[in-house]
């Protein structure tokens, strides 16, 4: 009798736990980098690195009164076989699933590529959509977002350069309108140099290269191994497995703008 009751109780608890875990997610989860989700595999590492770096910097920015923080600008690329398949994506659902921006202060930029989804090099950019979080609507109107797209990704500029400029233009709006900066300066000539010489810059690739060197090379010294062990403990011990960026819990109400190429 007692064991039957225990079994029933356990069964009920497990059932409720499993039901609670039921997920309605229909889009892929964001990547660990969060700010760049290159599912179409079309962005170059230099641009990805810039988006992540600027994204992390922006997330830490806080307004003078301390009320606004955790702003996020997220980029995503999707590859579809035909343009008609783009309609299967609801940007608000993606935005809300990824929970971009604290207190709805986020921007999602999505590139849709059309072509053979197994050949990233043959994909052609078809549509670019900017989805704006509820609170961000106050600072970024569809008109401004449309003008930014017209001046960047809709021009004949190289796609990597245009994406970087699109990011910088959005950052300009956020830093000046939201955080009250007088200006946000960036230099596209300098960026072109960075893009052309990306391998020479110390970046994530170098970091992984350094890890390989410490682990495999007989010439790596004891203190390098020590740093690696400490980093490993921090990442896998305290960080719960992987250090990753996450969404700020924001939602979007469908406000945004689209451009077709």
């Amino acid at each position: 009798m007692k064991s039957a009751f225990k079994f029933l109780l356990l069964f009920t608890l497990i059932s409720f736990t499993l039901l609670g875990c039921k997920s309605n997610k229909e889009y892929p989860n964001p990547t660990n980098e969060f700010y760049v989700n290159d599912f179409a595999n079309t962005l170059v590492p230099a641009v990805e690195s810039t988006i992540v770096r600027e994204g992390e910097r922006l997330y830490d920015e806080t307004s003078d009164d301390g009320e606004i923080t955790g702003v996020q600008i997220v980029f995503a690329t999707f590859a579809v076989e035909n343009e008609i398949n783009i309609a299967e994506y609801n940007l608000s659902d993606i935005y809300n699933q990824w929970e971009i921006g604290t207190d709805d202060m986020g921007i999602l930029v999505v590139y849709f590529y059309v072509g053979d989804t197994n050949k990233p090099e043959d994909l052609v950019l078809s549509q670019v959509i900017i989805e704006i979080g509820y609170q961000m609507e106050i600072y970024l109107s569809p008109i401004e977002a449309g003008n930014i797209l017209d001046d960047t990704i809709m021009t004949d500029m190289d796609e990597s350069m245009a994406t970087a400029q699109l990011l910088y233009e959005l950052l300009t709006i956020v830093y000046t309108e939201v955080f009250g900066y007088e200006a946000f300066n960036y230099d596209m000539d300098e960026y072109q140099y960075y893009l052309d010489n990306y391998d020479e810059y110390s970046d994530y690739d170098d970091f992984w290269g350094w890890i390989l060197y410490v682990v495999l090379s007989p010439y790596s010294v004891w203190w390098e191994k020590g740093i690696l062990v400490i980093l490993g403990l921090l990442i896998f011990g305290v960080g719960g497995g992987v250090v990753k960026n996450i969404g700020g819990g924001g939602r979007s109400g469908g406000m945004g703008i689209r451009r077709r190429r």
Partner: peptide, 14 residues
Amino acid sequence: MDAVWGIESALSEA
């Protein structure tokens, strides 16, 4: 037109 597209998109989502 951008303003129209934006508001119609938001209304459709609402």
